[in-house]
Computed example of a mutant assay.
Amino acid sequence: MLYLLHKYKKLFVGNTYQFLFVHLCEVKGSKKYSTIRMELLGIKFAPLNVPLERRLQTLAAAAWLVTFTVGGIIDRHAAETGGRISPWARSWKWWKYLKDYFPLQCVKSDGAILDPNKNYLFGCFPHGVMPSGIFSLLNTNYGGFDEYFPHHERYLVTLSEQFMLPFSRELMLSLGGVASSVKSIEYILGKPGGGNVLGITVGGAKESLNSKPGIYRIVLRRRKGFVKLALRNGARLVPVFSFGQNDLFDQLDGPRLRRFQEALRKWIVIAPIIPIGRGFFQYSFGLIPRRHPVVTVVGKPIEMPKIEKPTQEDIDKYHTIFMEKLIELFEENKHKYLEEPESKKLTID
């Protein structure tokens, strides 16, 4: 490339030749391959010699975002009765490309043993702009769930409104997505015989507005409905935390913008985030998530009694226990999976 640039330098106007020559000479080494870094007007462009495997990973990450934001018609109640899981859809190679793009990893903490005869509710944090870690773990066959918990079926709660979108609705049902309604959640947690895991991103859309690189601010203190449903069905609660989840996107923010976003969120349910990621061929801006490792750590289950009509005192008691276990999980693992862990604190709103 440098040879061709030098041979045809007369074709370039002004200082363009010198600019390109300097930046093309700036070579950055890698264990797998060498990249030629290019930068123009502050935009960092992807090297031309990136391997096809990495290009496919980037494409998978972009398609994942588009699929679940642009989307039913068929069996409209399926989202409230466990969906209709397709092992074939969960095994698409596409999801492996997505996993390897970041990459995504699941880790089981000591004591994280699931009884095959019990149902479990995974309380997952943080939501991030999009919860890639818990999606890979529960909705695909590449996240490591079956390796650690082979005797359980898995589901993930998502916004009920998303099941009104064509195409993406059908895909979500095939992957184990279920609606975020009391009926839907109790259908899974109340299944006789156990052997089911339901994941829920408790902070939801409100928490996604807090998603910023290096910041772990979650929405949990007043959200107690999931604890009530676990008690009513005798399902065990499990704290789950995805380290690195908030580093995949930055977002535009500011006091006025935040007030507008909060008002709009209450109206349309979905968080109106303005994400800052990367593009297909440059790293400075775009809607594709950035490459950053995400490690999802599954904590130790919390023993829960079955109380058909739990009192507020019952709910508060186990909600407090869950918060304590979640903080404990964060503090025990941040030194393993976060940069500058001493400066990282878990803030609970």
Rank of each mutant, 00 (worst) to 15 (best):
I113F: 03
I113E: 13
L114C: 00
L114M: 09
P116V: 10
N117W: 03
N119A: 06
F122T: 00
G123R: 10
G123T: 15
P126F: 06
P126N: 04
H127E: 04
M130N: 10
S132H: 02
G133T: 03
I134A: 03
L138D: 08
T140C: 05
T140I: 09
N141S: 15
N141F: 07
Y142A: 07
Y142Q: 10
F145Q: 10
D146N: 14
D146T: 05
P150D: 02
H152P: 01
E153I: 00
Y155F: 15
V157P: 02
T158C: 12
S160L: 06
Q162C: 11
M164T: 13
L165V: 01
P166Q: 09
F167R: 06
R169F: 14
S174L: 14
L175D: 03
G177M: 03
G177D: 01
A179P: 01
S180R: 12
K183R: 13
Y187V: 13
K191S: 07
P192R: 12
G193T: 08
V197M: 03
V197K: 03
V197I: 11
V197H: 07
G199S: 05
I200C: 07
V202W: 10
V202E: 10
L209V: 04
I215F: 10
Y216H: 06
I218S: 01
R222S: 14
A230S: 07
A230Q: 00
N233S: 12
N233F: 00
G234N: 08
A235S: 14
R236M: 13
V238T: 09
P239E: 05
P239I: 12
P239T: 08
P239S: 04
V240T: 02
F241L: 01
Q245W: 02
D247I: 01
D250N: 14
Q251N: 12
